[in-house]
């Protein structure tokens, strides 16, 4: 059971390792600490110090993908930690010519191999949701099946006594479905 539970501390650690790699690969990931509302809203006399939030951290990456030759789509990806499901969650949005893509347009940019798989499992589909830290509309892949597909991977890693970066492994599964490729270089280095 505990094998598949991602504690928040582990999530942070995994993200730190990804960031170290990302700095060398220069593919644009950054760590954004969202300040807690508690501090922001409180009067000066009652500030309690930085309040550490369950899910106040997000890894952000922006990458640009060309679609054909005419249209450039810009994707923005956020990796958040869900304390309800104890899993990472991928949020993203996409722009073209300054306007954001609709859900339909996002679906049409998903490769047909993936869209078949996604649509067949309604719980694992792309929906528009409020970004829990920014309050803005984002698309997301629902996390409630994450444990299911992560379990075999983590089991094999454990059986062979191999260290595994949960977040990186997870990202390499869910990322490509929505246009985010994880370079192989991330996994060839030592952790």
């Amino acid at each position: 059971m505990s094998l598949c539970v991602l504690e928040e501390e582990t999530f942070r650690h995994c993200c730190r390792l990804i960031l170290q790699q990302s700095e060398q690969l220069r593919d644009g990931w950054s760590w954004e600490s969202v300040q807690s509302v508690l501090v922001a809203s409180a009067g000066a006399d009652s500030i309690q110090g930085d309040i550490d939030d369950e899910d106040d951290d997000a890894d952000e990456g922006v990458c640009t993908v060309s679609e054909g030759s005419s249209q450039v789509l810009q994707y923005e990806y956020h990796i958040l930690y869900s304390c309800s499901y104890s899993t990472p969650v991928l949020y993203f949005r996409a722009f073209t010519l300054g306007r954001s893509l609709s859900l339909q347009e996002v679906w049409s940019s998903v490769h047909s191999n993936f869209s078949f798989r996604l649509q067949n499992s309604p719980l694992n589909t792309i929906t528009q949701q409020e970004h829990p830290l920014l309050g803005q509309p984002f698309f997301m892949l629902h996390p409630c099946r994450t444990e299911e597909f992560m379990r075999p991977v983590l089991q094999v890693a454990q059986d062979h006594n191999r260290p595994v970066n949960y977040v990186l492994t997870w990202l390499s599964v869910v990322g490509p479905m929505v246009g985010l490729d994880v370079p192989l270089k991330y996994t060839t280095s030592h952790y």
Partner: peptide, 18 residues
């Protein structure tokens, strides 16, 4: 307990923790 705490004057939409 599944809860969310909202406040009107905030950029952050709500607080939700364990």
């Amino acid at each position: 307990i599944p809860f969310r705490i909202y406040q009107a004057m905030s950029d952050r939409p709500f607080i939700q923790k364990l």
